[in-house]
Design a protein around this nucleic acid. Structure first.
Length: 657
DNA sequence: GAGCACTGC
């Protein structure tokens, strides 16, 4: 029998709440305009929050005749958003999608000569800018969801600002820029865009009651569990609960606990349908959260921050916010990415709160005290300050930015991070450094043509030398989508025995290649995927990525050969492009990286987990509980020395000192 | 010896 603990919450009445916090709850729309923008006669946007502004403003601009000189672009951080918004606006205009209103995302371009309002992902617009830094096709660029501060949006801020100025200087028809965001923090945007005027629009938001805990909670999982069952015993069963947790493992464990407890609830209590939700969950299981629960059942969704922005679930009445999130940080000194559980920012907490009652009033339980909340960071640190910048720097160079070291970022990354990125590009042969200038090499320009991390572009460009471009294209494609291997924890033994036939003692790259070859041999048979615990959807994506990369190779006139059964050449090619990511076995059985002598371990997901090869290259280092190498390939130490003699001489000298 | 937040080109 489960004993539900007495309430450990203090109720905070919405009316007695501090004014500034209530202001936060009222969703506000902010539009920032370029100073020489024409006056907008439009102050109210109909519709729900998050939809009205994005669908109406492009149409108003079009009606005002702006679309005549060029296309009106609207960027979105996510593909699905770009596609669904384009569909809605074209419906409102009563036109066929792809004609007046269209969209462009990777692998899908539904736009034409006639298109005047175009929705695209921010990454797509950035890629277009490499072809034309002045963005001449466009009369207006609307950067939507700017408060999310994705790395692409942040780079676009600088790119459109430069394009705006240059077009003015050159006397071309002016570019208009509209930044749309849903934060209180508008000054920063306005300042950056030459004190552009700010337009505030009010949307609709139903009131949400907020509860804080009286005391700080030492165990947020326990607190979440108590809250869920407290709500469950009090609220009508039609009202669903959304709980924000940090990761897959935690969510699976909590799912099991909730289901166990729900079996032993007292009579008269509603039934409970507990559903996990995280990105790597198979699509079919993700869809379950959208279906209404059977009568008499309450839906309890245990989610990562995927439900914060990417997935919106109707019918949520209660949000339980643990105040924790798992997020990546990057330290340029060590080149290490650290994935750690940490506190959310205030902005993130408000975003979570807003997920309660988008269509009706809601309730949010915050599993921290109000004092604790006041100490949260105001905003989440923009992605551009938490990432390896190698890709961004390569793109800026390809955009012919005069000096990438002094690029006008709205939030500047640390000089260390920029230096580390340039260093990495230098090692890959993408840049030349002359005095204080950084120049793109011809190789670097080719690398920028691929939608990949620079090291993988380099791998492809090196592959003709080893006569294995077909295989490298496959391997790089496999690495650039989410895992194609499905590992349900409950069927681990089964998975292991089925997977045996694919495993290569030479490492993960060649194992993945084996899976792909087998998949091709059965022509992508779905049944085969199920039997072999292969994620069919991701595998189809691999084929699409591969076709795109192969296309780029053809455009660059790269000879595309197959090494057939010779895996040595494939490994040599990987050694030559990933030589800066290598580790050697130490006498005590541990591994140390060649680059910085960092103690590292083989990630449990690697096929080499139980092996001890003398020398390996890896795709990335990830620090969780330990510092792990992910995706390994067994290589010869001699190959590495051949690949970069200067680099290894330097490392050897450093080791002696 | 034992593990992986989320996007995107």
């Amino acid at each position: 029998m489960v004993q539900v603990l007495p309430s450990n919450f203090v109720k905070i009445d919405f009316c007695s709440y501090s004014m500034s916090l209530i202001m936060n709850l009222v969703c506000r729309l902010r539009i920032h305009l370029d100073p020489d923008y024409f006056e907008l006669h439009m102050c109210k946007c109909p519709g729900e929050t998050g939809s009205g502004k994005t669908t109406q403003i492009p149409q108003y601009l079009y009606e005002a005749g702006i679309g005549r000189q060029g296309i009106i672009a609207v960027t979105q951080p996510r593909r699905v958003a770009a596609i669904s918004l384009a569909t809605r606006v074209s419906n409102e205009k009563k036109t066929e999608l792809g004609k007046l209103v269209g969209y462009t995302v990777r692998f899908e371009d539904l736009s034409s000569e006639e298109t005047r309002i175009k929705f695209l992902t921010d990454g797509m617009l950035l890629r277009e800018a490499i072809g034309d830094p002045l963005l001449r096709k466009y009369s207006v660029i609307i950067l939507d969801e700017a408060h999310e501060r994705t790395i692409h949006t942040d780079v676009l801020f600088g790119v459109v600002k430069a394009a705006l100025r240059k077009r003015k200087d050159l006397g071309k028809f002016p570019l208009k820029v509209v930044i749309m965001s849903a934060t209180m923090d508008v000054d920063q945007f306005s300042q950056y865009f030459n004190r552009a005027p700010v337009l505030y629009l009010e949307g609709r938001q139903h009131p949400i009651q907020i509860f804080y805990t009286k005391q700080p909670q030492s165990d947020y999982l326990q607190a979440a569990l108590v809250s869920v069952f407290q709500i469950h015993q009090e609220a009508p069963s039609s009202q669903d609960i959304l709980v924000f947790l940090t990761g897959q493992e935690e969510i699976e464990a909590m799912t099991k606990t909730c289901r166990d407890i729900a079996k032993h609830l007292p009579d008269g209590c509603p039934q409970m349908a507990v559903m996990p939700l995280y990105a790597s969950l198979p699509y079919s299981q993700q869809l379950r959260v959208f279906q209404p629960a059977p009568k008499g059942y309450r839906k309890v969704i245990l989610s990562t921050n995927i439900a914060e922005t990417s997935i919106t679930i109707a019918g949520i009445k209660y949000v339980v916010d643990t105040g924790m999130v798992k997020a990546k940080k990057y330290s340029p000194e060590s080149g290490l990415e650290v994935l750690a559980v940490q506190r959310v920012s205030k902005a993130q907490a408000w975003q979570r709160t807003g997920r309660a009652g988008p269509e009706d009033s809601g309730v949010c339980y915050r599993l921290y005290t109000e004092d604790e909340f006041e100490k949260f960071d105001k905003m989440t640190i923009p992605e551009i300050q938490r990432c390896n910048l190698a890709s961004v720097m390569l793109q800026l160079l390809a955009l012919r930015i005069p000096n990438v070291l002094t690029f006008d970022f709205m939030s500047k990354p640390s000089p260390d991070a920029i230096r580390a990125a340039i260093e990495q590009l230098d090692l890959l042969g993408a840049v030349d450094r002359k005095e204080a200038q950084v120049m793109l090499t011809p190789l670097g320009r080719k690398m920028a043509a691929f939608p990949l991390e620079p090291k993988f572009s380099k791998t492809i460009l090196l592959s003709p030398k080893f006569h294995c471009t077909e295989e490298i294209l496959t391997i790089v494609s496999l690495l650039s989508v989410d895992s194609i291997l499905y590992n349900p924890p409950s069927r681990r033994d089964e998975v292991q025995s089925v997977r045996k036939k694919f495993i290569s003692s030479e490492g993960d790259h060649l194992t993945l290649l084996n899976v792909y070859r087998a998949f091709r041999n059965v022509s992508g048979n779905k049944e085969w995927c199920r039997e072999n615990f292969v994620n069919n959807r991701n595998m189809m994506l691999v084929s699409e990525v591969r076709a795109q990369l192969r296309d780029i190779c053809l455009k660059l006139s790269l000879p595309i050969e197959s090494s057939r059964s010779d895996t040595g050449n494939i490994r040599r090619c990987l050694a030559h492009s990933l030589f800066m990511n290598t580790a050697e076995l130490q006498p005590d059985g541990t591994y140390a990286t060649v680059d910085s002598n960092q103690l590292v371990a083989i990630h449990p997901s690697s096929v080499l987990f139980h092996c001890k090869p003398a020398c390996v290259t890896y795709n990335e280092l990830l620090h969780t509980n330990k510092c792990y190498m992910r995706d390994l390939c067994v290589v010869d130490a001699d190959w590495l020395y051949d690949a970069a003699p200067d680099y290894f001489r330097r490392k050897l000298r450093a080791a002696k000192n």
